[in-house]
Write a protein that binds this DNA or RNA. Structure first.
Lengths: 312, 312
DNA sequence: TTGAAAGCGTTACCAG
DNA sequence: CTGGTAACGCTTTCAA
Protein backbone atom coordinates (compact mmCIF):
# COMPACT_ATOMS: atom_id res chain seq x y z
CA UNK A 1 0.00 0.00 0.00
CA UNK A 2 1.46 3.31 -1.06
CA UNK A 3 2.18 5.78 1.68
CA UNK A 4 3.15 9.38 1.91
CA UNK A 5 6.85 8.58 2.18
CA UNK A 6 6.84 6.57 -0.98
CA UNK A 7 5.26 9.42 -2.85
CA UNK A 8 7.79 11.77 -1.28
CA UNK A 9 10.72 9.62 -2.27
CA UNK A 10 9.42 9.33 -5.77
CA UNK A 11 8.99 13.07 -6.06
CA UNK A 12 12.30 13.71 -4.36
CA UNK A 13 10.79 15.81 -1.59
CA UNK A 14 10.01 15.37 2.07
CA UNK A 15 6.76 13.95 3.32
CA UNK A 16 5.88 17.32 4.77
CA UNK A 17 5.83 18.73 1.30
CA UNK A 18 3.63 15.98 -0.01
CA UNK A 19 1.32 16.55 2.90
CA UNK A 20 1.23 20.23 2.12
CA UNK A 21 0.36 19.55 -1.48
CA UNK A 22 -2.46 17.29 -0.45
CA UNK A 23 -3.83 19.73 2.06
CA UNK A 24 -3.55 22.46 -0.54
CA UNK A 25 -2.35 24.45 2.44
CA UNK A 26 1.10 25.99 2.75
CA UNK A 27 2.50 27.66 -0.29
CA UNK A 28 4.29 25.11 -2.40
CA UNK A 29 6.35 26.04 -5.43
CA UNK A 30 4.51 25.33 -8.62
CA UNK A 31 7.27 23.05 -9.86
CA UNK A 32 7.37 20.87 -6.78
CA UNK A 33 3.61 20.69 -6.63
CA UNK A 34 3.62 19.36 -10.18
CA UNK A 35 6.23 16.75 -9.33
CA UNK A 36 4.32 15.63 -6.29
CA UNK A 37 1.04 15.44 -8.12
CA UNK A 38 2.66 13.37 -10.76
CA UNK A 39 4.04 10.98 -8.17
CA UNK A 40 0.63 10.72 -6.57
CA UNK A 41 -0.95 9.93 -9.89
CA UNK A 42 1.67 7.38 -10.77
CA UNK A 43 1.41 5.53 -7.51
CA UNK A 44 -2.33 5.81 -7.14
CA UNK A 45 -1.71 7.04 -3.64
CA UNK A 46 -4.70 7.51 -1.34
CA UNK A 47 -4.23 8.97 2.12
CA UNK A 48 -4.78 6.59 4.98
CA UNK A 49 -7.77 7.92 6.86
CA UNK A 50 -6.87 5.87 9.91
CA UNK A 51 -3.53 7.57 10.34
CA UNK A 52 -5.20 10.88 9.78
CA UNK A 53 -7.81 10.13 12.37
CA UNK A 54 -5.25 9.14 14.92
CA UNK A 55 -3.36 12.31 14.39
CA UNK A 56 -6.41 14.55 14.16
CA UNK A 57 -8.15 12.84 17.05
CA UNK A 58 -11.38 12.69 15.14
CA UNK A 59 -12.59 9.79 13.05
CA UNK A 60 -14.88 11.67 10.75
CA UNK A 61 -17.39 8.94 11.29
CA UNK A 62 -20.69 8.83 13.05
CA UNK A 63 -22.50 5.91 14.58
CA UNK A 64 -26.07 5.06 13.73
CA UNK A 65 -27.93 2.91 16.17
CA UNK A 66 -31.13 1.41 14.91
CA UNK A 67 -33.40 -1.25 16.40
CA UNK A 68 -34.18 -2.92 13.13
CA UNK A 69 -33.58 -1.79 9.58
CA UNK A 70 -36.27 -4.02 8.24
CA UNK A 71 -38.76 -1.44 9.40
CA UNK A 72 -39.00 0.85 6.37
CA UNK A 73 -39.29 3.85 8.62
CA UNK A 74 -35.96 3.09 10.20
CA UNK A 75 -34.49 2.28 6.84
CA UNK A 76 -35.53 5.66 5.49
CA UNK A 77 -34.10 7.34 8.54
CA UNK A 78 -30.79 5.55 8.13
CA UNK A 79 -30.62 6.37 4.47
CA UNK A 80 -31.12 10.03 5.25
CA UNK A 81 -28.53 9.97 7.98
CA UNK A 82 -25.95 8.26 5.84
CA UNK A 83 -26.50 10.56 2.89
CA UNK A 84 -26.36 13.70 4.98
CA UNK A 85 -23.27 12.48 6.81
CA UNK A 86 -21.55 11.62 3.57
CA UNK A 87 -22.28 15.09 2.30
CA UNK A 88 -20.23 16.38 5.22
CA UNK A 89 -17.43 13.92 4.60
CA UNK A 90 -18.48 11.62 7.41
CA UNK A 91 -18.82 7.87 7.17
CA UNK A 92 -21.65 6.08 8.92
CA UNK A 93 -21.23 3.02 11.08
CA UNK A 94 -24.57 1.26 11.47
CA UNK A 95 -25.46 -1.11 14.22
CA UNK A 96 -28.66 -2.97 15.00
CA UNK A 97 -29.78 -3.58 18.50
CA UNK A 98 -33.28 -5.06 18.32
CA UNK A 99 -33.75 -2.95 21.40
CA UNK A 100 -31.95 -5.63 23.36
CA UNK A 101 -30.21 -3.94 26.28
CA UNK A 102 -27.15 -6.16 26.14
CA UNK A 103 -26.64 -5.53 22.45
CA UNK A 104 -27.13 -1.84 23.04
CA UNK A 105 -24.30 -1.85 25.53
CA UNK A 106 -22.03 -3.88 23.34
CA UNK A 107 -22.75 -1.64 20.38
CA UNK A 108 -22.19 1.62 22.15
CA UNK A 109 -18.94 0.28 23.48
CA UNK A 110 -17.83 -0.66 20.01
CA UNK A 111 -18.76 2.74 18.65
CA UNK A 112 -16.90 4.43 21.43
CA UNK A 113 -13.77 2.38 20.87
CA UNK A 114 -13.92 3.32 17.23
CA UNK A 115 -14.11 6.89 18.39
CA UNK A 116 -17.12 7.90 16.36
CA UNK A 117 -17.51 11.65 16.51
CA UNK A 118 -21.21 11.45 17.28
CA UNK A 119 -24.06 9.02 17.36
CA UNK A 120 -27.59 9.13 16.08
CA UNK A 121 -30.05 6.82 17.76
CA UNK A 122 -33.26 5.77 16.05
CA UNK A 123 -34.71 3.70 18.84
CA UNK A 124 -33.83 2.47 22.28
CA UNK A 125 -35.01 0.00 24.83
CA UNK A 126 -36.98 1.51 27.65
CA UNK A 127 -34.84 2.60 30.52
CA UNK A 128 -31.60 2.42 28.59
CA UNK A 129 -28.86 4.66 29.90
CA UNK A 130 -26.74 4.15 26.84
CA UNK A 131 -27.06 7.75 25.69
CA UNK A 132 -25.81 8.93 29.03
CA UNK A 133 -22.73 6.77 28.95
CA UNK A 134 -21.94 8.03 25.46
CA UNK A 135 -22.52 11.58 26.56
CA UNK A 136 -20.29 11.07 29.58
CA UNK A 137 -17.56 10.03 27.21
CA UNK A 138 -17.91 13.31 25.42
CA UNK A 139 -19.74 11.98 22.40
CA UNK A 140 -22.63 14.10 21.12
CA UNK A 141 -25.82 12.10 20.88
CA UNK A 142 -29.02 12.87 19.11
CA UNK A 143 -32.20 10.85 19.23
CA UNK A 144 -34.07 10.74 15.98
CA UNK A 145 -37.81 10.08 15.91
CA UNK A 146 -38.21 9.83 19.63
CA UNK A 147 -37.43 11.68 22.80
CA UNK A 148 -35.65 10.37 25.77
CA UNK A 149 -34.43 10.63 29.28
CA UNK A 150 -34.06 14.23 30.04
CA UNK A 151 -30.31 14.60 30.05
CA UNK A 152 -29.64 18.21 29.18
CA UNK A 153 -26.79 17.36 26.84
CA UNK A 154 -28.92 15.20 24.60
CA UNK A 155 -30.19 16.31 21.24
CA UNK A 156 -33.45 15.11 19.84
CA UNK A 157 -35.55 15.45 16.75
CA UNK A 158 -38.79 14.18 18.01
CA UNK A 159 -42.43 13.98 17.15
CA UNK A 160 -45.34 14.42 19.47
CA UNK A 161 -46.59 10.92 20.17
CA UNK A 162 -49.12 12.08 22.70
CA UNK A 163 -50.75 14.42 20.23
CA UNK A 164 -50.58 11.78 17.53
CA UNK A 165 -52.41 9.26 19.67
CA UNK A 166 -54.95 11.85 20.63
CA UNK A 167 -55.74 12.55 16.99
CA UNK A 168 -55.94 8.85 16.20
CA UNK A 169 -58.32 8.15 19.03
CA UNK A 170 -60.26 11.29 18.25
CA UNK A 171 -60.78 10.13 14.69
CA UNK A 172 -61.84 6.67 15.75
CA UNK A 173 -64.08 7.99 18.50
CA UNK A 174 -65.84 10.25 16.03
CA UNK A 175 -66.51 7.18 13.92
CA UNK A 176 -68.36 5.72 16.84
CA UNK A 177 -65.72 3.40 18.22
CA UNK A 178 -65.72 2.75 21.95
CA UNK A 179 -63.78 -0.49 22.18
CA UNK A 180 -60.11 0.25 21.64
CA UNK A 181 -56.95 -1.71 21.95
CA UNK A 182 -53.31 -0.80 21.42
CA UNK A 183 -50.75 -3.14 19.92
CA UNK A 184 -47.06 -2.46 20.26
CA UNK A 185 -44.05 -4.31 18.98
CA UNK A 186 -42.49 -7.31 20.59
CA UNK A 187 -39.64 -5.44 22.19
CA UNK A 188 -39.88 -2.67 24.72
CA UNK A 189 -38.96 0.46 22.86
CA UNK A 190 -39.20 3.93 24.27
CA UNK A 191 -41.37 5.37 21.51
CA UNK A 192 -43.70 2.41 21.87
CA UNK A 193 -44.17 3.11 25.52
CA UNK A 194 -44.86 6.74 24.88
CA UNK A 195 -47.44 6.01 22.25
CA UNK A 196 -49.14 3.63 24.57
CA UNK A 197 -49.26 6.34 27.20
CA UNK A 198 -50.72 8.78 24.72
CA UNK A 199 -53.27 6.20 23.73
CA UNK A 200 -54.31 5.52 27.30
CA UNK A 201 -54.47 9.20 28.03
CA UNK A 202 -56.74 9.79 25.07
CA UNK A 203 -58.97 6.95 26.19
CA UNK A 204 -59.17 8.17 29.74
CA UNK A 205 -60.07 11.62 28.54
CA UNK A 206 -63.12 10.04 26.96
CA UNK A 207 -63.95 7.92 29.94
CA UNK A 208 -62.90 4.73 28.20
CA UNK A 209 -60.58 1.90 29.08
CA UNK A 210 -58.72 -0.44 26.80
CA UNK A 211 -60.44 -3.74 25.98
CA UNK A 212 -59.09 -7.15 25.00
CA UNK A 213 -57.89 -7.38 21.46
CA UNK A 214 -60.65 -9.86 20.56
CA UNK A 215 -63.35 -7.43 21.68
CA UNK A 216 -61.95 -4.32 20.08
CA UNK A 217 -63.48 -2.63 17.08
CA UNK A 218 -60.61 -0.18 16.87
CA UNK A 219 -57.03 -1.38 16.91
CA UNK A 220 -54.32 1.23 17.26
CA UNK A 221 -50.94 -0.10 16.22
CA UNK A 222 -47.63 1.29 17.33
CA UNK A 223 -46.45 1.52 13.74
CA UNK A 224 -47.42 0.73 10.17
CA UNK A 225 -45.63 -2.57 10.04
CA UNK A 226 -47.61 -3.82 12.99
CA UNK A 227 -50.81 -2.41 11.53
CA UNK A 228 -50.14 -4.32 8.35
CA UNK A 229 -49.58 -7.51 10.30
CA UNK A 230 -52.80 -6.94 12.17
CA UNK A 231 -54.80 -6.41 9.02
CA UNK A 232 -53.33 -9.59 7.68
CA UNK A 233 -54.23 -11.49 10.80
CA UNK A 234 -57.72 -10.05 11.04
CA UNK A 235 -58.56 -10.71 7.44
CA UNK A 236 -57.15 -14.20 7.48
CA UNK A 237 -59.36 -14.75 10.49
CA UNK A 238 -62.34 -13.95 8.33
CA UNK A 239 -63.15 -10.47 9.54
CA UNK A 240 -62.91 -7.35 7.41
CA UNK A 241 -61.06 -4.09 7.80
CA UNK A 242 -62.61 -1.58 8.25
CA UNK A 243 -66.12 -3.08 8.21
CA UNK A 244 -65.57 -5.21 11.31
CA UNK A 245 -62.45 -3.68 12.76
CA UNK A 246 -60.70 -0.39 12.16
CA UNK A 247 -56.91 -0.35 12.21
CA UNK A 248 -54.47 2.54 12.38
CA UNK A 249 -50.72 2.69 12.03
CA UNK A 250 -47.98 5.22 12.58
CA UNK A 251 -45.17 6.45 10.30
CA UNK A 252 -46.83 6.44 6.90
CA UNK A 253 -44.33 4.19 5.23
CA UNK A 254 -44.50 4.26 1.43
CA UNK A 255 -46.65 1.15 1.26
CA UNK A 256 -49.30 2.60 3.51
CA UNK A 257 -50.65 4.57 0.58
CA UNK A 258 -50.83 1.54 -1.68
CA UNK A 259 -54.20 1.01 -3.32
CA UNK A 260 -54.54 -2.39 -1.69
CA UNK A 261 -53.74 -1.05 1.74
CA UNK A 262 -54.79 2.56 2.16
CA UNK A 263 -53.81 2.61 5.77
CA UNK A 264 -55.01 5.32 8.10
CA UNK A 265 -51.88 6.41 9.86
CA UNK A 266 -49.85 9.27 11.28
CA UNK A 267 -47.34 10.73 8.90
CA UNK A 268 -43.81 11.09 10.17
CA UNK A 269 -41.04 12.30 7.93
CA UNK A 270 -38.12 9.96 8.42
CA UNK A 271 -35.98 11.60 5.80
CA UNK A 272 -36.39 15.00 7.32
CA UNK A 273 -35.60 13.72 10.77
CA UNK A 274 -32.48 11.95 9.63
CA UNK A 275 -31.20 15.02 7.87
CA UNK A 276 -32.06 17.25 10.74
CA UNK A 277 -30.30 14.93 13.18
CA UNK A 278 -27.11 15.24 11.17
CA UNK A 279 -27.47 19.00 10.97
CA UNK A 280 -27.69 19.23 14.73
CA UNK A 281 -24.80 16.89 15.22
CA UNK A 282 -22.58 18.76 12.81
CA UNK A 283 -23.36 22.03 14.45
CA UNK A 284 -22.56 20.57 17.87
CA UNK A 285 -19.29 19.11 16.73
CA UNK A 286 -18.25 22.39 15.23
CA UNK A 287 -18.97 24.07 18.50
CA UNK A 288 -17.12 21.27 20.22
CA UNK A 289 -19.95 20.49 22.56
CA UNK A 290 -23.07 18.47 22.93
CA UNK A 291 -26.23 19.02 20.93
CA UNK A 292 -28.31 20.03 23.91
CA UNK A 293 -31.24 20.90 21.77
CA UNK A 294 -34.60 19.32 21.22
CA UNK A 295 -37.27 19.93 18.75
CA UNK A 296 -40.58 18.27 18.46
CA UNK A 297 -42.88 18.10 15.49
CA UNK A 298 -46.57 17.52 15.43
CA UNK A 299 -47.50 14.93 12.87
CA UNK A 300 -50.70 14.91 10.87
CA UNK A 301 -53.19 12.09 10.83
CA UNK A 302 -53.68 10.70 7.35
CA UNK A 303 -57.12 9.21 7.05
CA UNK A 304 -57.40 6.46 4.48
CA UNK A 305 -59.52 3.35 4.26
CA UNK A 306 -58.61 1.11 7.14
CA UNK A 307 -60.79 3.05 9.49
CA UNK A 308 -64.55 3.32 9.23
CA UNK A 309 -67.71 3.57 11.22
CA UNK A 310 -67.90 1.30 14.22
CA UNK A 311 -70.00 -1.79 13.56
CA UNK A 312 -73.45 -1.72 15.15
CA UNK B 1 -9.86 10.67 26.93
CA UNK B 2 -8.00 8.08 28.92
CA UNK B 3 -5.11 6.37 27.18
CA UNK B 4 -2.89 3.47 27.84
CA UNK B 5 -0.18 5.61 29.39
CA UNK B 6 -2.54 7.12 31.89
CA UNK B 7 -3.62 3.68 32.98
CA UNK B 8 0.01 2.66 33.16
CA UNK B 9 0.97 5.63 35.28
CA UNK B 10 -1.92 5.01 37.59
CA UNK B 11 -0.98 1.38 38.01
CA UNK B 12 2.69 2.22 38.28
CA UNK B 13 3.69 0.03 35.37
CA UNK B 14 4.79 0.54 31.78
CA UNK B 15 2.38 0.78 28.93
CA UNK B 16 3.68 -2.50 27.59
CA UNK B 17 2.42 -4.20 30.67
CA UNK B 18 -0.98 -2.63 30.41
CA UNK B 19 -1.10 -3.70 26.81
CA UNK B 20 -0.17 -7.21 27.82
CA UNK B 21 -2.91 -7.32 30.38
CA UNK B 22 -5.44 -6.17 27.85
CA UNK B 23 -4.33 -8.66 25.25
CA UNK B 24 -4.40 -11.34 27.88
CA UNK B 25 -1.24 -12.42 26.12
CA UNK B 26 2.18 -12.51 27.73
CA UNK B 27 2.36 -13.87 31.22
CA UNK B 28 1.74 -11.11 33.70
CA UNK B 29 2.14 -11.54 37.44
CA UNK B 30 -1.18 -11.91 39.17
CA UNK B 31 -0.49 -8.92 41.41
CA UNK B 32 0.34 -6.52 38.60
CA UNK B 33 -2.59 -7.73 36.54
CA UNK B 34 -4.87 -6.89 39.44
CA UNK B 35 -3.40 -3.44 39.78
CA UNK B 36 -3.76 -2.78 36.11
CA UNK B 37 -7.30 -4.04 35.99
CA UNK B 38 -8.15 -1.81 38.86
CA UNK B 39 -6.68 1.19 37.10
CA UNK B 40 -8.64 0.33 33.99
CA UNK B 41 -11.84 0.10 35.93
CA UNK B 42 -11.20 3.34 37.76
CA UNK B 43 -10.47 5.30 34.65
CA UNK B 44 -13.07 3.68 32.46
CA UNK B 45 -10.35 3.17 29.92
CA UNK B 46 -11.35 1.85 26.49
CA UNK B 47 -8.70 1.07 23.91
CA UNK B 48 -8.57 3.37 20.93
CA UNK B 49 -9.47 1.24 17.96
CA UNK B 50 -8.02 3.79 15.59
CA UNK B 51 -4.56 3.52 17.06
CA UNK B 52 -4.89 -0.22 17.05
CA UNK B 53 -5.91 -0.22 13.43
CA UNK B 54 -3.00 1.92 12.44
CA UNK B 55 -0.61 -0.35 14.18
CA UNK B 56 -2.26 -3.58 13.11
CA UNK B 57 -2.82 -2.39 9.57
CA UNK B 58 -6.34 -3.65 9.58
CA UNK B 59 -9.42 -1.67 10.45
CA UNK B 60 -11.65 -4.52 11.47
CA UNK B 61 -14.37 -2.91 9.46
CA UNK B 62 -16.08 -3.86 6.26
CA UNK B 63 -17.83 -1.69 3.74
CA UNK B 64 -21.35 -2.36 2.60
CA UNK B 65 -22.38 -0.81 -0.67
CA UNK B 66 -26.08 -0.77 -1.35
CA UNK B 67 -28.09 0.99 -4.04
CA UNK B 68 -30.97 1.86 -1.79
CA UNK B 69 -31.85 0.68 1.66
CA UNK B 70 -35.47 1.56 1.23
CA UNK B 71 -35.84 -1.62 -0.75
CA UNK B 72 -36.68 -4.15 1.97
CA UNK B 73 -34.64 -6.78 0.22
CA UNK B 74 -31.54 -4.65 0.45
CA UNK B 75 -32.39 -3.70 3.97
CA UNK B 76 -32.60 -7.35 4.97
CA UNK B 77 -29.32 -8.04 3.25
CA UNK B 78 -27.64 -5.18 5.07
CA UNK B 79 -29.02 -6.25 8.38
CA UNK B 80 -27.65 -9.73 7.86
CA UNK B 81 -24.28 -8.41 6.81
CA UNK B 82 -24.00 -6.09 9.75
CA UNK B 83 -25.04 -8.72 12.26
CA UNK B 84 -22.69 -11.33 10.88
CA UNK B 85 -19.84 -8.86 10.72
CA UNK B 86 -20.47 -7.76 14.28
CA UNK B 87 -20.34 -11.36 15.37
CA UNK B 88 -16.80 -11.46 14.03
CA UNK B 89 -15.87 -8.21 15.70
CA UNK B 90 -16.14 -6.19 12.54
CA UNK B 91 -17.95 -2.90 12.15
CA UNK B 92 -19.94 -2.13 9.05
CA UNK B 93 -19.70 1.08 7.08
CA UNK B 94 -22.76 1.46 4.88
CA UNK B 95 -22.96 3.60 1.82
CA UNK B 96 -25.75 4.19 -0.64
CA UNK B 97 -25.10 4.70 -4.28
CA UNK B 98 -28.49 4.71 -6.02
CA UNK B 99 -26.50 2.94 -8.68
CA UNK B 100 -25.13 6.29 -9.76
CA UNK B 101 -21.65 5.70 -11.21
CA UNK B 102 -20.19 8.89 -9.80
CA UNK B 103 -21.42 8.11 -6.30
CA UNK B 104 -20.09 4.59 -6.66
CA UNK B 105 -16.65 5.94 -7.39
CA UNK B 106 -16.76 8.42 -4.56
CA UNK B 107 -17.95 5.78 -2.16
CA UNK B 108 -15.39 3.17 -3.06
CA UNK B 109 -12.69 5.79 -2.72
CA UNK B 110 -13.94 6.71 0.72
CA UNK B 111 -14.05 3.08 1.79
CA UNK B 112 -10.57 2.52 0.52
CA UNK B 113 -9.21 5.54 2.34
CA UNK B 114 -10.80 4.24 5.49
CA UNK B 115 -9.01 0.99 4.80
CA UNK B 116 -12.00 -1.29 5.14
CA UNK B 117 -10.81 -4.87 5.22
CA UNK B 118 -13.35 -6.01 2.66
CA UNK B 119 -16.46 -4.84 0.91
CA UNK B 120 -19.81 -6.42 0.25
CA UNK B 121 -21.75 -5.05 -2.66
CA UNK B 122 -25.50 -5.48 -2.92
CA UNK B 123 -26.01 -3.84 -6.28
CA UNK B 124 -24.06 -1.99 -8.90
CA UNK B 125 -24.62 0.11 -11.95
CA UNK B 126 -24.18 -1.73 -15.20
CA UNK B 127 -20.66 -1.62 -16.48
CA UNK B 128 -19.18 -0.46 -13.22
CA UNK B 129 -15.54 -1.33 -12.72
CA UNK B 130 -15.60 -0.36 -9.09
CA UNK B 131 -15.09 -3.93 -7.87
CA UNK B 132 -11.98 -4.21 -9.99
CA UNK B 133 -10.45 -1.06 -8.61
CA UNK B 134 -11.11 -2.28 -5.09
CA UNK B 135 -9.65 -5.66 -5.94
CA UNK B 136 -6.59 -4.02 -7.46
CA UNK B 137 -6.06 -2.29 -4.18
CA UNK B 138 -6.01 -5.63 -2.46
CA UNK B 139 -9.45 -5.42 -0.94
CA UNK B 140 -11.53 -8.59 -1.05
CA UNK B 141 -14.90 -7.98 -2.66
CA UNK B 142 -17.99 -10.09 -2.66
CA UNK B 143 -21.15 -9.42 -4.57
CA UNK B 144 -24.30 -10.37 -2.73
CA UNK B 145 -27.48 -11.18 -4.61
CA UNK B 146 -26.02 -10.70 -8.03
CA UNK B 147 -23.12 -11.79 -10.17
CA UNK B 148 -20.75 -9.59 -11.97
CA UNK B 149 -17.93 -8.98 -14.31
CA UNK B 150 -15.89 -12.08 -14.42
CA UNK B 151 -12.84 -11.00 -12.51
CA UNK B 152 -11.38 -14.17 -11.04
CA UNK B 153 -10.67 -12.55 -7.70
CA UNK B 154 -14.26 -11.60 -7.07
CA UNK B 155 -16.52 -13.47 -4.70
CA UNK B 156 -20.21 -13.75 -5.27
CA UNK B 157 -23.27 -15.17 -3.62
CA UNK B 158 -25.63 -15.09 -6.47
CA UNK B 159 -28.98 -16.39 -7.57
CA UNK B 160 -29.90 -17.64 -10.98
CA UNK B 161 -31.83 -14.81 -12.58
CA UNK B 162 -32.09 -16.56 -15.90
CA UNK B 163 -33.71 -19.60 -14.36
CA UNK B 164 -35.94 -17.38 -12.24
CA UNK B 165 -37.23 -15.52 -15.26
CA UNK B 166 -37.75 -18.78 -17.08
CA UNK B 167 -39.93 -20.10 -14.30
CA UNK B 168 -41.86 -16.85 -14.10
CA UNK B 169 -42.55 -16.80 -17.81
CA UNK B 170 -43.30 -20.51 -17.78
CA UNK B 171 -45.92 -20.02 -15.11
CA UNK B 172 -47.51 -17.10 -16.93
CA UNK B 173 -47.37 -18.87 -20.26
CA UNK B 174 -49.14 -21.87 -18.81
CA UNK B 175 -51.88 -19.53 -17.65
CA UNK B 176 -52.39 -18.56 -21.26
CA UNK B 177 -50.50 -15.29 -21.35
CA UNK B 178 -48.87 -14.30 -24.61
CA UNK B 179 -48.47 -10.56 -24.18
CA UNK B 180 -45.60 -9.92 -21.80
CA UNK B 181 -43.72 -6.90 -20.67
CA UNK B 182 -40.82 -6.41 -18.29
CA UNK B 183 -40.47 -3.45 -15.95
CA UNK B 184 -37.18 -2.66 -14.31
CA UNK B 185 -36.21 0.04 -11.90
CA UNK B 186 -35.33 3.56 -12.81
CA UNK B 187 -31.61 3.10 -12.57
CA UNK B 188 -29.48 0.70 -14.57
CA UNK B 189 -28.52 -2.02 -12.18
CA UNK B 190 -26.69 -5.15 -13.12
CA UNK B 191 -29.20 -7.60 -11.70
CA UNK B 192 -31.95 -5.72 -13.50
CA UNK B 193 -30.22 -6.15 -16.78
CA UNK B 194 -29.70 -9.80 -16.20
CA UNK B 195 -33.30 -10.40 -15.32
CA UNK B 196 -34.34 -8.59 -18.42
CA UNK B 197 -32.08 -10.85 -20.42
CA UNK B 198 -33.55 -13.90 -18.78
CA UNK B 199 -36.99 -12.58 -19.49
CA UNK B 200 -36.27 -11.99 -23.15
CA UNK B 201 -34.63 -15.35 -23.46
CA UNK B 202 -37.66 -17.07 -22.00
CA UNK B 203 -39.89 -15.17 -24.39
CA UNK B 204 -37.80 -16.01 -27.41
CA UNK B 205 -37.80 -19.63 -26.45
CA UNK B 206 -41.57 -19.51 -26.82
CA UNK B 207 -41.48 -17.54 -30.00
CA UNK B 208 -42.75 -14.39 -28.33
CA UNK B 209 -41.57 -10.83 -28.22
CA UNK B 210 -42.16 -8.22 -25.58
CA UNK B 211 -45.15 -5.91 -26.10
CA UNK B 212 -45.87 -2.37 -24.94
CA UNK B 213 -46.83 -2.07 -21.32
CA UNK B 214 -50.35 -0.93 -22.20
CA UNK B 215 -50.98 -4.06 -24.27
CA UNK B 216 -49.52 -6.56 -21.86
CA UNK B 217 -51.61 -9.01 -19.89
CA UNK B 218 -48.56 -10.21 -18.00
CA UNK B 219 -46.21 -7.77 -16.37
CA UNK B 220 -42.96 -9.11 -15.02
CA UNK B 221 -41.34 -6.72 -12.56
CA UNK B 222 -37.69 -6.64 -11.69
CA UNK B 223 -38.50 -6.80 -8.01
CA UNK B 224 -41.34 -6.82 -5.52
CA UNK B 225 -41.28 -3.11 -4.86
CA UNK B 226 -41.79 -2.40 -8.52
CA UNK B 227 -44.47 -5.05 -8.73
CA UNK B 228 -46.28 -3.38 -5.87
CA UNK B 229 -46.06 -0.03 -7.60
CA UNK B 230 -47.41 -1.56 -10.75
CA UNK B 231 -50.36 -3.14 -9.01
CA UNK B 232 -51.08 0.20 -7.45
CA UNK B 233 -50.91 1.95 -10.79
CA UNK B 234 -52.98 -0.67 -12.61
CA UNK B 235 -55.70 -0.76 -10.01
CA UNK B 236 -55.90 2.97 -9.69
CA UNK B 237 -56.29 2.97 -13.45
CA UNK B 238 -59.40 0.89 -13.03
CA UNK B 239 -58.10 -2.51 -14.08
CA UNK B 240 -57.82 -5.50 -11.82
CA UNK B 241 -54.95 -7.76 -10.85
CA UNK B 242 -54.98 -10.61 -11.77
CA UNK B 243 -58.30 -10.54 -13.67
CA UNK B 244 -57.11 -8.06 -16.26
CA UNK B 245 -53.39 -8.13 -15.78
CA UNK B 246 -51.09 -10.55 -14.03
CA UNK B 247 -48.10 -9.17 -12.16
CA UNK B 248 -45.04 -10.90 -10.78
CA UNK B 249 -42.24 -9.66 -8.57
CA UNK B 250 -38.90 -10.90 -7.39
CA UNK B 251 -37.39 -11.22 -3.89
CA UNK B 252 -40.40 -12.19 -1.82
CA UNK B 253 -40.13 -9.36 0.64
CA UNK B 254 -42.16 -9.89 3.81
CA UNK B 255 -45.11 -7.87 2.55
CA UNK B 256 -45.47 -9.96 -0.56
CA UNK B 257 -47.27 -12.59 1.48
CA UNK B 258 -49.71 -10.12 2.99
CA UNK B 259 -53.35 -11.06 2.63
CA UNK B 260 -54.06 -7.88 0.73
CA UNK B 261 -51.19 -8.45 -1.67
CA UNK B 262 -50.43 -12.12 -2.16
CA UNK B 263 -47.83 -11.42 -4.77
CA UNK B 264 -46.57 -14.12 -7.07
CA UNK B 265 -42.83 -13.76 -6.89
CA UNK B 266 -39.47 -15.47 -6.78
CA UNK B 267 -38.17 -16.13 -3.33
CA UNK B 268 -34.65 -14.99 -2.60
CA UNK B 269 -33.16 -15.29 0.84
CA UNK B 270 -31.53 -11.98 1.62
CA UNK B 271 -30.57 -12.96 5.13
CA UNK B 272 -28.84 -16.08 3.99
CA UNK B 273 -26.97 -14.25 1.28
CA UNK B 274 -25.78 -11.56 3.62
CA UNK B 275 -24.51 -14.09 6.11
CA UNK B 276 -22.89 -16.15 3.47
CA UNK B 277 -21.18 -13.10 2.01
CA UNK B 278 -19.59 -12.39 5.35
CA UNK B 279 -18.55 -16.00 5.75
CA UNK B 280 -16.74 -15.89 2.44
CA UNK B 281 -15.14 -12.59 3.21
CA UNK B 282 -13.91 -13.73 6.61
CA UNK B 283 -12.46 -16.86 5.14
CA UNK B 284 -10.68 -14.87 2.47
CA UNK B 285 -9.25 -12.40 4.93
CA UNK B 286 -7.96 -15.20 7.09
CA UNK B 287 -6.25 -16.68 4.09
CA UNK B 288 -5.00 -13.22 3.25
CA UNK B 289 -6.32 -13.32 -0.27
CA UNK B 290 -9.33 -12.58 -2.36
CA UNK B 291 -12.57 -14.49 -2.16
CA UNK B 292 -12.32 -15.91 -5.65
CA UNK B 293 -15.35 -18.04 -5.18
CA UNK B 294 -18.83 -17.90 -6.56
CA UNK B 295 -21.92 -19.74 -5.72
CA UNK B 296 -25.27 -19.49 -7.30
CA UNK B 297 -28.60 -20.52 -5.93
CA UNK B 298 -31.73 -21.38 -7.79
CA UNK B 299 -34.71 -19.63 -6.36
CA UNK B 300 -38.22 -21.03 -6.25
CA UNK B 301 -41.23 -19.38 -7.77
CA UNK B 302 -43.89 -18.65 -5.19
CA UNK B 303 -47.28 -18.62 -6.83
CA UNK B 304 -49.84 -16.47 -5.07
CA UNK B 305 -52.75 -14.41 -6.26
CA UNK B 306 -51.44 -11.69 -8.52
CA UNK B 307 -51.22 -14.05 -11.43
CA UNK B 308 -54.16 -15.72 -13.07
CA UNK B 309 -55.53 -16.95 -16.36
CA UNK B 310 -54.99 -14.59 -19.25
CA UNK B 311 -58.12 -12.58 -20.07
CA UNK B 312 -59.97 -13.79 -23.17
C1' DT C 1 9.73 27.28 0.03
C1' DT C 2 11.18 23.10 2.13
C1' DG C 3 12.33 19.59 5.61
C1' DA C 4 13.30 17.56 10.33
C1' DA C 5 11.18 16.08 14.17
C1' DA C 6 7.64 15.27 17.42
C1' DG C 7 3.58 13.01 18.43
C1' DC C 8 -1.39 10.79 17.90
C1' DG C 9 -2.34 5.61 20.98
C1' DT C 10 -1.22 1.18 20.10
C1' DT C 11 1.51 -3.27 19.76
C1' DA C 12 5.63 -6.14 19.30
C1' DC C 13 10.21 -7.11 19.85
C1' DC C 14 13.99 -7.66 22.75
C1' DA C 15 16.73 -6.71 26.76
C1' DG C 16 17.09 -6.90 31.40
C1' DC D 1 7.87 -11.05 34.29
C1' DT D 2 8.54 -6.11 32.95
C1' DG D 3 9.82 -2.00 30.39
C1' DG D 4 12.18 0.64 26.61
C1' DT D 5 11.91 1.46 22.01
C1' DA D 6 10.53 1.46 17.48
C1' DA D 7 7.20 1.47 14.36
C1' DC D 8 2.12 2.22 12.01
C1' DG D 9 1.07 6.86 8.35
C1' DC D 10 -0.06 11.11 8.93
C1' DT D 11 -0.07 16.46 10.24
C1' DT D 12 2.00 20.28 12.28
C1' DT D 13 5.09 23.26 14.30
C1' DC D 14 9.47 25.33 13.81
C1' DA D 15 13.97 26.11 11.67
C1' DA D 16 16.70 26.60 8.00
Amino acid sequence: MTTLVEVARRAGVSKSTVSNVIQGSAAVAEATRKRVEKAIRETGYRPNAIARSLRARTSHSIGMIVPDLSNPFHAALSVAVERAAKRHGYATLVAHTDCAPDIEIEVSRALFERRVDAVVIAGLSTGSDMPVSLLDNGIPVVLASFGGPSDQRLGSVDHDDIAAMESVVDHLFALGHRKFTFVSQSYAEQSGERRRQGFELALKRRGLVEVQRAQATAVVAHNDLIALDLIDEIERGGRMVPQDVSVTGHDDIPLAAHSRIRLTTVRSDATFMGERAIELVMRAMQAGGHVAHREIYTNPLVVRHTTGAAPQ
